[in-house]
Amino acid sequence: MSKRYLVRRLLHALFLLAGISLLSFVLLELAPGDFLGEAKLNPQLGPQTLAALRQQYGMNQSLPQKYVRWLGSVADGSFGVSFAYNLPVSTLLWPRARKTLQLTLASLFLSWLIALPLGVWSAAGRDGWLDRGVRAATSALVALPDLVLACLVLFVAVRMGWYRSGDAALPVTVLVLAALPALVRHVRSAVLDVSGQPYIRAARSHGISGARLWFRWLLPAAANPLASLFGLSVAGLISSSLLVETILGWPGLGPLFLEAIAARDFYLVIGPVMLSAAFLIAGVLLGDLLLYALDPRIRVDT
């Protein structure tokens, strides 16, 4: 694999992350209100105490100063300090991030495991009963918002007595159900596009057919759109996980983030934003690398 390509993509990813961090900082700074805003209402805290606290937390600094300080904290691994917990943000983030990753990776694996065969079989039996069923189901479900899906699953689980807080089964189910419709659709259309290509028809004429054709010829040929899809599916899972974790009681980044927001704990808010952005970008990058590895045509150009 070309080192230049890899380096280029990594640099690009870093630039993107830097841009996102800057944008987030600016947007959050623009919004009036901070951690101590609510505290003003507490009659026990006199104005001097508040001023001292402000000084201590570094809230009086200008935006560039804060940003630079934060970059420094990124370099030394602490990612700023949580006002509410009085701990480095990273200490709070990593255990939660691990949990979120567990959930996301499990869902990623499972959803692709189901979507690939389903999409291929659907395309193979085009307009047959399976295909029509799959198309109908995906059409109906693709518009179902994640939030509502999570609520419905929670509802059903509680009424049926299946619900256990902290259990992974329900969150994974929701994430997989949320991701499947679009995924199956895209797999199906990617495979269909490829099946019309001349080299596939040539393979058919050579007598290659059935499962062998579909899984050893078509799927690799469809690697290009599928690899890009991979990156997008990671992105989708990351966004969905926030709500799913919160609603179904999974101790990942989501609930921590919402808590920090409620408390306006600035650096603890920036942390998960950056982390999820990093996961997102990593996912797309992984997709691109996968594509690079699978599709020889790309290697020639880069």
Binding site: S24, A31, P32, L242, I261, V269, I270, P272, S276, V284
Partner: peptide
Amino acid sequence: ALPWLYLLLAVRAFLP
């Protein structure tokens, strides 16, 4: 490339 939901929640939270 933004995790828009995260950003949306964050910005909203810091509004009065």
